[in-house]
Each structure stands twice: as structure tokens, then as C-alpha cells.
Amino acid sequence: MNNAAIKETAGSVKLGQVKKIRSKRWETPVTGYLFLSPWLIGFLLLTLGPMIMSLYYSFTDYSLLAAPNWVGFDNYKQIFTDDDVFPKSLKITITFVLLTVPLRLMFALCIAMLLNRKMKGMSFYRTMVYFPSLIGTSIAVSILWKNIFSRNGFINDFLGIFGIKGPAWIADPKYALGTLIILMVWQFGSSMIIFLAGLKQIPTDLYEASSVDGAGKFRQFVSVTLPMLSPIILFNAVQTMINTFQMFTQSFVITNGGPVKSTFVYVMYLYEEAFTKFHMGYASALAWILLILIGLFAAVLFGTSKYWVFYENQGGKK
């Protein structure tokens, strides 16, 4: 190799390096941040800032009327050791979540499978089934529920036909939470639509191959549908769990936390502390405990997911 050639290669290597470095530079740093600015300002001002403030308030006795005084861990200590309402509302909320989430997902999946057929009229059925979810958390639907499950509401009239004397539902501490769970389960529409989209993506040859191997309908459901759908089940479970933890309007309007605080869910307690008693510091501590609680539930779902969520592109590792 002669000198000239070496020089040339060296030169081209250098040129290549320069090009590489150039391409590493950002093309549009200023324009990028200009376009991003609404969200970035919003994030700093309305999310991150308030989060830090909320954490700070949780260590103070802030009450909106007087300036905050630092009290260390007193709020947390009081919540965990000297607060009768906290464990009760926590228990109610966790019961509520543990019952609502699986029931809602189960219904959503079953109906999605019924709807996942190539038949005429499917969009009509889908509309009917989705309709209750459309009116979601509005106050209107809470009013309807309050009426349906009242002592003389239509549920009891319906039961009366069969000679069953229904309880007072909303006025009965044993059943009040149940009526809220039924409401939440009734509105499974959005999870169902996501399941439906997931079911449509499962390749049909998997079903054909398994039926050639002699798998029945149930076996196909367990060995094909569930594994293929598991990432979506995880997504829906996390989503539903987070929403269920934050349920407020329904219990506020239908039962107002009662009777005897049997539906006094966590967020209602938080609301009462913050906005009727103006215990902003105490309420902030409650909010952070809620955040950690939701985080724990999410961690359990994600942490166990490697045992039950199946990702196709990982070479079929289950």
C-alpha cells in the first residue's frame, strides 16, 4: 500500500467521523422546544410543581387559611396510628378495586369474544353494549342509579315479581358498595373495545392449527386466545385499576359515602379533608399514600407479568 492510498483512507475515515458527529447534532433544537413548550410549561407548572408542593404540604399543617408550619412526619404518623377513618376507607377502596377490576375485565372479555364474529348486525350490538359506558362518570348516570336501586326502585319491583323482597340497597350498609360495583362493571365498554381490537389481531391460522391438533373451543381459549391477548389484559388491568382507585362522583352522588360510611372511598375521604375541612396538609399526605398504593398495585401487575404475559417477539418465552 503506498502512501497516497493510506492518506486517502485516513482522509475518508476522518470525513466519515465528521459526518457522524454532524448527524449527531440536533436538527431542530429551538423549533423543537418551541413546539414542545405548551406541554413543557404545563408539566412544570401544573404537574411537577404541584407534586413537589403537595409533598411539601404533606409535612406541614397547611390549612389554606394559615401559612404552613413544618410538622415532620406528624401527618403520616396520625394517619397510620390515630385515624379511625383511614383504615376503614382504605379497606373499602381495596375491596372495591379487587372486586371491580376482575369482574369488569371478565365481562369485557366475554362480551368482546361474543362480538368478535363475522356476522351481520355486529356494529348494532356493539353500540348497544357500549352505550352505558358512553355516559361514563357523569352525574346523570349516578342519578339514574340512585333511582333504580332505591327502596321502591325498579330492581326491587322486578324482584317482587318473583316474590323476593329486595333490601334497601343504597340505604343498606351491606349492599351499598355492591350497587356501586355493579355500576362500574356495567360500564365495561372501553375495556371491551380494546379487547375486541386485540382479538381481531390474533392470526386465524393459530386457531386453524390448533383445531387440526384436536383442540376444543375451551382449549383454544386457554392456549391461544388468553396468551395472545395477555399484553392487552395487562394494559386493561392497569388502566381499570388506576381509574377504580380514583372513583369519586358515583359514591359522592349515589350514597354520599354512606350509609354508616360503608361506601366512603379513599378519594371521598381525601376530598372531605381537603375541601370541606381545609386540612390541606393532611389531605396531601393522604394523596401521596394513594399514589404509593396505586404504584404498589401497578408494580404487582407488572412484576408478575413475566409469568403470565406472553410477548410474541421474545421468541415465545412465556
Binding site: 436538527e27 423543537g32 422546544y33 414542545l36 406541554w39 380514583q246 378519594v267 401497578a298
Partner: peptide, 29 residues
């Protein structure tokens, strides 16, 4: 657009998607 920390901010945005509003509602109020 191509700007520094783009993926970082995108990840943060996805996290806020799951953030319960209760943590920010008191200071916002």
C-alpha cells in the same frame, strides 16, 4: 422534530398519563 431530551420528555409524558390527579389537585387549587 429532533431536539435534545426528546425521548426523555416523551417518557415523562407517558408517566403523567398514569398519574392520579389527587396528587396535584390540592396545590393546583
Amino acid at each position: 422534530l429532533d431536539f435534545p431530551l426528546r425521548n426523555f420528555w416523551f417518557a415523562i409524558m407517558l408517566v403523567t398519563l398514569m398519574l392520579p390527579t389527587q396528587v396535584t389537585v390540592v396545590p393546583q387549587y
